[in-house]
């Protein structure tokens, strides 16, 4: 009960203080707002990238073509070797007849041409379709299989996908760097804001100490003030997430550039990201105010 009263008082004081020194608070709030907008964009982008690369990676398969006219023993040997590679998750063997039937089903033209082929005249090759455990090592695994006797060609994924994933990864790294730098600047600004509040309330603080306020009571309003700054700073970014992402999603009908890149559905995604952004805002505010209190409020 006592704690709640104290917290209530702290929150009331914090809001009062933010609005009393509004011009000062405004600097911190704008900085938090800008930071959180960039944080929000980064989170939205990286979750989406994460999502569709995972989708693409799920479908990434190594296709192994076996040389024509090879004996069944040789195929057994290749099977064993593939099974022996540690990065191989699973594999399916598809004989040339199966491949032919699948292709016939896909198109009428193929169907017409291939209907003529019998087992011997079928120019297609027997194949293995291999899935790997670690997608980053897919090229090593493919090269290893290529070196096997009786294997003619190995193909995996599309080079474009690979390049896209690396491109997004480097963009992500840059975004992280920018976010961290912005957070540091924000924390610094909050420290300054809280420092000035502490100085402007020196007299009050000394009287509080005199009449028996505990350290907790003295410190909490300042820390809460930092959190309130963070909270206010997250209003604009959250609106941007809630309405901006929804509009973006609807405008592009859920896909970006091509059917390949599918966007994450807005619900509940935007709410989760909003909560994350609010949480980050409050946390950054708290870190700033806590360090200001530690530095400038000797109790």
């Amino acid at each position: 009960m006592k704690l709640f009263r104290m917290l209530g008082r702290s929150i009331r004081d914090a809001f009062k203080s933010v609005f009393r020194n509004f011009s000062l608070s405004l600097a911190s709030i704008s900085c938090i707002t800008i930071t959180l907008i960039i944080v929000a964009l980064s989170i939205l982008a990286s979750f989406n990238v994460e999502n569709f690369t995972a989708e693409i990676e799920k479908d990434m398969t190594i296709v192994v073509f076996v040389e024509n006219g090879i004996s069944d023993d040789k195929i057994d040997e290749i099977t064993k070797k593939i099974k022996g590679i540690s990065n191989v998750d699973s594999y399916i063997f598809k004989g040339k007849q199966t491949v032919k039937e699948e292709m016939q089903k896909e198109s009428d033209i193929f169907n017409a041409i291939m209907a003529e082929w019998d087992d011997d005249s079928n120019p297609l090759k027997d194949t293995f379709q291999v899935k790997v455990k670690n997608i980053e090592k897919i090229s090593q695994t493919a090269n290893k299989i290529k070196s096997f006797d009786g294997v003619s060609v190995v193909r995996y994924g599309e080079g474009m996908v690979d390049q896209m994933v690396t491109a997004f990864q480097s963009i992500e790294k840059v975004a992280y760097g920018v976010v961290i730098a912005l957070i540091l600047v924000t924390v610094f600004l909050i420290i300054n804001t809280i420092k000035l509040t502490i100085f402007s309330r020196k007299r009050e603080i000394s009287i509080m100490r005199l009449v028996g306020a505990s350290n907790f009571t003295i410190k909490t309003p300042f820390i809460v003030e930092g959190m309130v700054l963070g909270l206010i700073g997250s209003i604009v970014p959250v609106c941007l997430i809630l309405f901006g992402y929804l509009a973006f999603y609807q405008h592009f009908d859920g896909y970006l550039f091509s059917q390949l890149i599918q966007l994450i559905k807005p619900e509940p995604f935007i709410y989760i990201v909003s909560l994350m952004v609010i949480g980050i805002g409050i946390l950054v505010g708290m870190i700033g105010s806590a360090s200001a209190v530690r530095k400038y409020l000797k109790v």
Binding site: K2, L3, M6, M208, L210, V211, A213
Partner: peptide, 28 residues
Amino acid sequence: IVFQDYRLLPKLNVYENVAFTMEVIGAK
């Protein structure tokens, strides 16, 4: 504790200045 220079809070009225003690110790 009482000092020569009173040490009241100028923005609070008489009641609030006295109530200040009670508030910071969390009284009802």
